[in-house]
Write a protein that binds this DNA or RNA. Sequence first.
DNA 1: TTCCAGGTAGCCG
DNA 2: CGGCTACATGGA
Length: 295
Amino acid sequence: MTYQLECSIKDNKIRLREMEDFNLLQTIECGQCFRWNREVNGSYTIQAFTKAINVSQENNEIVITNSSLSEFEEIWIKYFDIQRDYGEIKKILAENDPIMGKAISFGEGIRLLNQDEWETLVSFLISQNSNIPRIKGTIKSLCENFGDSFTALGNQMFFTFPTPLEIASCDDSQMDVCKLGYRKSYISETAKAIANDHGKRLYNLKNENYEAALKYLIELPGVGPKVANCTMLFSMEKYESFPIDVWVKRVMGRLYGLDEKDLKGIEQFAAEKFGKYGGFAQQYLFYYIRENKLI
DNA sequence: TTCCAGGTAGCCG
DNA sequence: CGGCTACATGGA
């Protein structure tokens, strides 16, 4: 897991050579994040926190455009989970598990991103009973209507993800343009709850244990076990999270022979089999079955 | 047209 | 508890 870092100040680029276990396409398109654009040259323009960057990959070399060295160290190392040894995780998961072995070799370059807690929570609130292309559109609309604009990467205009206060302080009818459907009240009510203590508790969940974080999250309106586990996995480093959605039910039924309707059974099986690596396992399996449409 | 999509809340037995 | 079902909306 060694890599070489090279920073070019004059064109504001960061270059990482000899990156292992990193595939940009898989990491961005595996369904954990939604504010990205695939450019015609194959690079990705990605928005996270209040920044916009462009990232490209050629073999084991990653180039990040529009990042200083300090910003890379403060934000992007953590965001892309660059310092974690995925080779070790994959080895442990694939041991004595040929099914997982297949899933891992299909998505061998997936990394779990460390995203903003609030954005992740709202994104997965929106995700319920929807699909990835539509989730992306809804989130984009939310940003354009309630976020703040800025320019980056030449003269391109971007919008930040609206803060809890920005959503809490608009009235419900204003949000109709975003076509949130029945999720609208979930978003506005949750925004009010979070804004009420200025996000203090939400942004502290990272430091609390899994059970405490889960308990707090599922008490928010519209947040159940699936949304809570996605939020914890993609923004709070709770890697024992094992979000169970329709695709994971399918994979556990088709590939592991479990009863798809028995949520508790799947949960228990995953906890015993994958333990503290549950989140990694889930993401390999999710990507594997969704991309191969093994229905 | 009908069905489904990274679910959850409310209700009923 | 466990098992339904409504919920907005758009795309196949």
